[in-house]
Design a protein around this nucleic acid. Structure first.
Length: 273
DNA sequence: CGCATTCCCTGGGTGC
DNA sequence: TGCACCCAGGGAATGC
């Protein structure tokens, strides 16, 4: 399940592989995946385009080309493969045939991922358009301040875990890292956002940065979800403190697993109030 | 506006 | 071995 660090890792490897590559043609095998544009137009608009840069905004990948920008969200199991021209794999949904004879494939077992295509020139312009326009601040951005969180949290009666997952408030945290941030901040994931103290918000700010930075430096987290294969092998799973853990690394209390807003949530009942 | 709920998908796991 | 059913989960759509 790619969250910010995993998408960052994918971005970095794709950069090495496809910048400068030119698209000869595109095959789409699952039309519903293509958003904001007719599928035939999507295919047509990409022919002859060259990948000039790849960026990440929140959990979105941005493929910058000469005349278009393609935005891809991997959701649960989306992956990109660069491989020789060969038969379509079972879960390959979009195949970009490159002019050097190789192919870039978007593969997604559960078909949850989506791809947008925009005829826009600048990132600034694109950030004003959905889906990017809905995103809140990333933990690494300058605007991620105490003041910002205070404003966003003060009126919310939702559980802190749910609010951490809300991309319109903080963009980049997913289920794994939201659990880690709650643990590192010593917060019960069920506590209401508006009930947090200033010190709690400060802890959220610092632990979000720490956990994401560390995860990025280790290439993300690979949790071997039963349905996926060929995952990018991150090493952060060895550093997880609560998510999927049985015992608290601090006090050795048994880690509880509950559901917060339908999301599996791990926490230490002693260290997290 | 905030928030809860439903839906999209697949295939591994479980129970009979 | 086969089959029905459950479940995970990010974000959009829907409804209150």
């Amino acid at each position: 399940m790619p969250e910010l660090p995993e998408v960052e890792t994918v971005k970095n490897s794709l950069r090495q592989l496809i910048i400068g590559q030119k698209i000869a043609s595109v095959d789409v095998y699952y039309d519903k995946m293509i958003k904001d544009i007719d599928v035939n137009e999507f295919k047509k608009d990409l022919v002859g385009e060259v990948f000039t840069d790849i960026l990440r905004v929140g959990k979105y990948l941005l493929f910058i080309m000469d005349h278009v920008i393609m935005i891809s969200h991997l959701r649960m199991e989306g992956k990109y493969f660069l491989k020789a021209k060969e038969e379509k794999g079972k879960h390959d949904h979009v195949i970009f045939n490159l002019t050097d004879g190789t192919t870039l494939r978007y593969n997604d077992t559960r078909k949850f991922g989506v791809i947008h295509l925009f005829k826009m020139s600048t990132i600034e312009e694109l950030k004003k358009t959905a889906p990017l326009s809905k995103l809140g601040i990333e933990p690494f951005e300058e605007g991620f301040t105490l003041e910002y969180l205070k404003n966003k949290f003060k009126k919310s009666s939702r559980p802190i875990k749910t609010v951490l997952l809300d991309q319109s408030i903080i963009s980049g945290l997913g289920n794994i890292y939201a659990d880690e941030v709650c643990f590192m901040s010593g917060l019960n994931p069920l506590e209401k956002a508006k009930d947090l103290e200033i010190e709690d918000l400060e802890k959220i700010i610092s632990s979000s940065k720490i956990v994401l930075e560390k995860a990025i430096s280790l290439g993300g987290t690979t949790i071997r979800s039963f349905t996926s294969s060929h995952e990018i092998n991150g090493r952060f799973q060895n550093e997880l403190l609560v998510h999927t853990k049985k015992e608290c690394p601090k006090c050795h209390t048994k880690i509880e697993k509950i559901f917060v807003g339908k999301r599996g949530t791990y926490y230490c009942p002693l260290c997290q109030r």
